[in-house]
């Protein structure tokens, strides 16, 4: 497959399928709550509706206010290019792209928080402060996991670390260490995507919000971009988990592996929905404990393979 068709297929997979994930999560939660719930395709309808709406922009805001929503879509899209999707290889790969992957999301976080501060609202400043302080605990955890994977693969490129052939060798040999990494990554995915037990995406009280409060002032197409971006981010970060957990007894066939990857993403959304349904949100002071604890698991795994 040449690079151009790979690039197009890779991006289309992300752009078209990502909005399914929040729909599945919502449907799962509705099922547990005994409700019928919104249709799985709800986010597609929402995005279409928001696209046609006007925007209300506070006069105190500057251009930074618009950079946040733009990056919300641009960053996950760029980062996804370095991530293999099942059998589809990463279109962009070079040694050390894992660090770029992590810090692209750092860039997104910086501008989301800046856009929130730009509105001058006290609530949004509070949300930005929380988001930043929690992510500075989640970031070392991701880096430790990537270090661990890089050490196992002998390369610091995401394509090498997460290639199905490489993982098929690594799982039987270092299954337990990879299991630790998987748990850490799952916690990070929940934290970074503002999910229970770290943040509640459905909360309607500004005082308890983390992520949602930062985007209160955005409306219309800008809000649509943010919603779409968070779905893309869920797909990309979830992709790390799914790619890592693809069973070692994979079909070598490219198409089958990719289909398995997509099925894995949908299953992950189902799992997140179940976690959200059966767990309560942690009190804010306990969140750092969860994040540090999961980071320590990865650190422990790293020491085990370094010895």
């Amino acid at each position: 497959m040449n690079l151009l068709s790979l690039l197009i297929l890779h991006s289309l997979l992300l752009l078209l399928l990502a909005p399914l994930l929040p729909g599945i999560i919502a449907k799962t939660k509705a099922f547990f709550g005994g409700r019928k719930g919104a249709p799985v395709l709800q986010l597609y309808f929402d995005l279409n509706r928001l696209r046609r709406k006007g925007m209300v922009v506070s006069p105190t805001t500057s251009w930074i206010f618009f950079v946040g929503p733009l990056l919300a879509v641009a960053v996950p899209l760029t980062a996804s290019l370095m991530l293999p999707f099942g059998g589809l290889a990463a279109p962009v790969r070079f040694g050390g792209d894992a660090i770029l992957f992590v810090y692209l999301f750092g860039l997104l976080r910086f501008f989301t928080a800046s856009a929130a501060l730009d509105t001058g609202s006290a609530f949004e400043g509070m949300g930005a402060a929380r988001e930043v302080s929690f992510s500075c605990l989640a970031e070392p955890a991701v880096l430790l996991v990537l270090l661990l994977l890089g050490r196992l693969a002998g390369s610091f490129s995401l394509q090498q670390m997460l290639a199905p052939q490489q993982l098929a060798v690594a799982w039987p040999a270092q299954g337990v260490t990879l299991g630790l990494a998987l748990v850490t990554l799952l916690v990070v995915v929940l934290a970074e995507n503002a999910r229970i037990p770290v943040d509640d995406p459905n909360t309607h009280l500004e005082l308890t919000m983390i992520h949602e409060v930062m985007v209160l002032d955005h409306s219309g197409p800008a809000l649509g971009l943010i919603e779409y971006g968070s779905a893309l981010k869920l797909w990309v970060l979830g992709g790390l988990v799914v790619q890592l957990s693809l069973p070692p007894l994979l079909p070598t066939d490219l198409a089958a592996t990719t289909l398995l990857f997509i099925a894995g993403q949908l299953l992950l959304a189902l799992l997140i929905g179940i976690i959200e349904s059966v767990m309560a949100r942690l009190p804010l002071p306990r969140v750092p404990a969860l994040l540090i604890g999961s980071g320590l698991l990865a650190a422990f795994g790293l020491i085990l393979i370094l010895r």
Binding site: A289, I292, A299, I303
Partner: peptide, 16 residues
């Protein structure tokens, strides 16, 4: 959290 950090350090030390 400090207890847990020390615990992980001790466990890692045990392995080394």
């Amino acid at each position: 959290i400090p207890t847990l950090v020390v615990g992980v350090v001790v466990a890692a030390g045990a392995f080394l």
